[in-house]
Design a protein around this nucleic acid. Sequence first.
DNA 1: GAGAATAGCGTACGCACGTTCGCTATTGAT
DNA 2: ATCAATAGCGAACGTGCGTACGCTATTCTC
Lengths: 200, 200
Amino acid sequence: MSPRRSAADALLTRGRILSRAAEIASEEGLDGITIGRLAEELEMSKSGVHKHFGTKETLQIDTLDKAFVDFWHRVVEPALTEPPGLRRLRVVCANSVDYLAEPLLPGGCLMTAALSEYDGRPGAVRDAVAQVWSRWQGQLKADLVAAVEGGELAGGFDVDQALFEILAAGLALNAAMQLQHDQAAVGRARRAIERALHQS
Amino acid sequence: MSPRRSAADALLTRGRILSRAAEIASEEGLDGITIGRLAEELEMSKSGVHKHFGTKETLQIDTLDKAFVDFWHRVVEPALTEPPGLRRLRVVCANSVDYLAEPLLPGGCLMTAALSEYDGRPGAVRDAVAQVWSRWQGQLKADLVAAVEGGELAGGFDVDQALFEILAAGLALNAAMQLQHDQAAVGRARRAIERALHQS
DNA sequence: GAGAATAGCGTACGCACGTTCGCTATTGAT
DNA sequence: ATCAATAGCGAACGTGCGTACGCTATTCTC
């Protein structure tokens, strides 16, 4: 019908597809993404959607990557004005709690959803999920380590234990929000994270 | 081919179907359950499998319920010899950590997988997931409350905060085991739970 | 201005899905 | 001995899926 096809338009179309795909995936999982459904909702042809990715698996991975980039923009980057260490860590954690409490995507955090969905299924999608989580954990751990090295945390502080508890709080907050719409969980997550930083 | 159909045999067949379905669902999600696949693996016809449940949605719910009953048998019931309160709670928590570290199902805890999978999709399956989680949380909370009332925990102890942190540790342990096969997470989960019971 | 690239469309394909229907053979109660 | 129930089978259905192919129209490069 309307074959516009400049390079700029193509990138824009690709972005529209990924945005909608991320919304769908956040509610119904990466497997809920369907080329036919995307085509219908974006008012284009199945083959038009397909061509941008070549394979459904690629579409799923690109969707996850896009969601991760958005997450990073909102959660991590604003904290980079703080020096590495405890100050930056606290801002990152606060931002991530805010993100989980009021996510960009309608079905909540896609990284978290994809984690459960693909942790038992070998393949490229699972690898992508693992990489995304590895980066997020690496970011948190780097500031924990910096805080210890900078003397902001007590000597003998167990970095991996704190990391575990911070991640745990995020997972539990996401579950409480998505399954039970429990707003009170937000405060509990904040407190749990603060407690993770005060090992006795 | 071999139409045996006593009432006892029927129940047995139903159990075989649900057992295999639970295994599949633990690895690929409740949506990974497929009547055709079950029929093939169990060497029976699609219609034979179908007839036991009438609807795929019912099959999914029954699978979840079966997995929950098995979980309950292994985690909660052995602890009922302890008196309600802190002692029973510690046994339940220890059993649940053991369960997550070495689950009955190949893909890990089905309740946890189903939580992420269906938290954003209204319907009977989601309701079943919510109910299962509500029962599990209720069990934990009952012993926390009993512990407070029995004076085993300090006055002013925040039961909901502790419950949040215990559940969080379980979710994080499951994620660490399934995505990263991180055995060290077992000890961290145990420690996180113990810390949840020692509010400062 | 000519020509290679390519965004997007339309059509078609094979496949797996859940569900339906009618049948057969066995059971279990009368 | 009879007869209603029913476990399970086999075949068929409509649907939606991912993917492949060829085409058209526009853009970008030279």
